Simulated scan of single mutants.
Amino acid sequence: MQDNAQTRSPVDAKSAERPLGPALRRGWRRKCPNCGSGPMLKGYLKVRDHCPVCREDLFHHRADDGPAYMTILIVGHLAAPLLGTVWMAWQPEPLVLFTIFAIGTVALSLYLLPRLKGAMVAFQWARRMHGFGRES
């Protein structure tokens, strides 16, 4: 009977080297999921082709609309109950309520969007999705 380490494919052996938790934390901070020090994004949402520090290829990502959907999901689930609670507790003027919640939801969305994109790219990197698992 062969040793389990010998029967494992190279991709299986390498997959243990990419823990999900640290990669997601690095992505949330918009840093390279590999080294954690190089910037992942150039500009607001544009992902770099590679990390300027460790040269890890990042162009494989397929984040597409995922970060926007997650942002809408989170902001909506926070804003809707809060809107109802504020209305029931204080009954502010509708224009005041609209202004406060419009500013709050836009600000929260602008804060979350690049962080969720970084986390999504880091998730794909950690799980070797969309070409991240290929050997260079």
Results as ranks from 00 to 15, higher is better:
128 R>I: 09
18 R>Y: 14
59 F>N: 13
128 R>Y: 14
81 P>I: 03
130 H>E: 13
47 V>W: 05
40 M>F: 12
85 T>A: 14
86 V>R: 02
81 P>K: 05
110 L>C: 13
79 A>L: 12
117 K>F: 11
57 D>W: 01
110 L>M: 15
93 E>H: 12
74 I>A: 11
37 S>Y: 08
42 K>N: 08
79 A>K: 06
18 R>T: 11
36 G>T: 06
39 P>L: 10
62 R>G: 10
46 K>D: 15
114 P>C: 03
81 P>Q: 06
75 V>E: 02
20 L>V: 12
128 R>H: 14
120 M>Q: 09
127 R>A: 10
133 G>S: 05
3 D>E: 13
25 R>E: 13
18 R>E: 04
72 I>F: 10
86 V>K: 03
57 D>R: 12
29 R>G: 09
18 R>C: 03
85 T>F: 15
124 Q>N: 10
9 S>Q: 12
29 R>M: 13
104 G>S: 15
78 L>K: 00
1 M>S: 08
85 T>W: 15
23 A>C: 05
89 A>D: 11
45 L>G: 07
15 S>P: 01
38 G>L: 03
94 P>N: 05
103 I>P: 07
17 E>W: 01
48 R>T: 02
131 G>P: 12
83 L>F: 13
55 R>Q: 14
130 H>P: 04
27 G>M: 00
57 D>K: 10
120 M>N: 08
41 L>N: 05
65 D>W: 00
86 V>F: 07
71 T>R: 01
19 P>W: 08
45 L>M: 14
118 G>A: 11
40 M>C: 13
135 E>F: 09
102 A>S: 15
46 K>A: 15
9 S>W: 11
36 G>N: 11
26 R>W: 06
87 W>P: 06
14 K>H: 11
39 P>E: 14
66 G>K: 06
47 V>T: 05
111 Y>L: 15
75 V>H: 02
49 D>T: 12
64 D>G: 07
92 P>W: 03
80 A>I: 10
15 S>W: 02
37 S>P: 06
75 V>G: 03
29 R>F: 05
57 D>L: 06
123 F>C: 02
104 G>H: 09
56 E>A: 08
93 E>C: 02
33 P>C: 00
32 C>R: 00
73 L>H: 12
117 K>E: 13
136 S>R: 07
82 L>P: 04
102 A>L: 15
69 Y>L: 15
12 D>Q: 15
100 I>Y: 08
40 M>D: 14
17 E>Q: 10
40 M>L: 15
12 D>Y: 07
73 L>I: 08
28 W>S: 10
93 E>D: 14
65 D>F: 00
75 V>D: 02
97 L>G: 03
120 M>T: 11
60 H>F: 01
4 N>R: 02
23 A>K: 03
126 A>S: 15
58 L>S: 09
125 W>L: 03
104 G>D: 10
2 Q>E: 10
86 V>H: 05
55 R>C: 05
69 Y>Q: 09
53 V>L: 09
83 L>Q: 05
106 V>T: 00
101 F>T: 05
27 G>V: 00
77 H>E: 05
116 L>Q: 07
101 F>Y: 09
24 L>V: 03
19 P>K: 10
32 C>F: 00
46 K>Y: 10
7 T>V: 04
134 R>L: 06
120 M>W: 15
53 V>F: 08
30 R>S: 13
109 S>H: 01
134 R>C: 02
64 D>T: 01
37 S>G: 14
